[in-house]
Design a protein around this nucleic acid. Structure first.
Lengths: 193, 193
DNA sequence: GGTGCCATGTAACGCGTTACATGATTAT
DNA sequence: ATAATCATGTAACGCGTTACATGGCACC
């Protein structure tokens, strides 16, 4: 859902063609190592935007070189963009892959939960190291936005590591009282009868 | 990538049929409000698992009632599962939708960055409130895993809020020195020539 | 004459979604 | 009777991916 609107936002600046859009996107997110958008996605997304009337093809030029299909944003597109800007993004905290991995390692008996935690912590430290390095290499004069992004990543990685500690501690406490197989339909708000 | 392995993990416990798998999944993640897996996904995923040889159909019973297609995990499936358990999950810190929204609101001039931040903060507070409520309603005796999940969510929401403060402060500091349009190909490690 | 960049796409697949469709058993 | 729950799927679409394919231009 983000790439769609990002392209729209870039077209709001000025009309562009596919290749140019991809380059602009990359520049704005701070390089392909942060967010690599494949050409295929750019062109198919442009097609869908066009079908939806949010974008229209302005002209197809071929000044000697290869042909360029230039797209521009429509009023409907500007409206959709404004709507996107005015709503907060929904965080996907649920659907946590590590959590289900951990719970299943306990429930299925196919893996040792402590080893699962160890693997995760190891990966987190590795990522933290890589990101910290990248931040130290960035130039605060020109890469301010990029640095902000890295700081967000670091804060989340640290939160993950702190949380892993909590999980491990709780796991130790649970040792003898394994886990009461949770009965379905028992969670959240009381049954909506 | 998670549902696939989750189903595999549940089949490692014992053979089951589709409907049962869905119920077990829901029980394990703590209710549909956390992670709602649609029937369509369960059945199509089972098909793909079967095609990949990670799962096989054990029997199709119809004891009076509707037919049940019972699946069991194969040795190859157990292997894939063990591999999944032994590797940490890759965090998707890059591909941050809010970040690109913020940057584009500045670059495109179509929205006020402060309003974008406000909308996001508002949403975060709303979610934080909802999650905190859910945690306070949960029973630590039976819903331990569930509470752990909520605590992770809370920690990340708080990190997001703290980060928003930083962003806003930096934005204030940037006021007069708008932003140097980042030139492409300038980021990360030095050009790998 | 290559290598690399500019520029465009198509095909097929994986994961997830909504909507649609069917039918049997069980409880009120 | 009818509503809920059990149980199974198909079709079509959105987003993202990899792989494949084409062709011009510029530079060494």
């Amino acid at each position: 859902m983000s790439v769609r609107h990002a392209l729209l936002g870039l077209l709001a600046q000025r009309p562009r063609h596919g290749y140019e859009l991809r380059a602009a996107f990359e520049a704005v997110v701070g390089g392909e190592e942060n967010w690599d958008v494949k050409p295929a996605q750019v062109y198919t997304t442009l097609l869908r935007l066009q079908e939806g009337g949010l974008v229209r093809e302005e002209a197809a030029m071929q000044d000697g070189g290869p042909e360029k299909h230039i797209y521009e944003i429509t009023p409907a597109g500007r409206e959709a963009l404004a709507e996107w800007f005015s709503t907060g993004v929904e965080s996907e905290h649920h659907r946590d892959e590590f959590f289900i991995k951990l719970v299943l390692s306990m429930a299925s008996g196919e893996a040792d939960p402590y080893q699962v935690i160890w693997a995760q912590r190891s990966r987190l430290y590795q990522e933290l190291h890589a990101v910290t390095l990248r931040r130290s290499e960035a130039d605060p004069e020109t890469d301010l936005a990029y640095i902000l992004l890295l700081e967000k990543v670091i804060m989340h990685l640290e939160a993950d590591l702190r949380w892993l500690e909590i999980v491990e501690a709780r796991l130790d406490g649970m040792k003898r009282q394994p886990l009461p197989e949770p009965s379905p339909k028992r969670r959240g708000r009381p049954p909506k009868k």
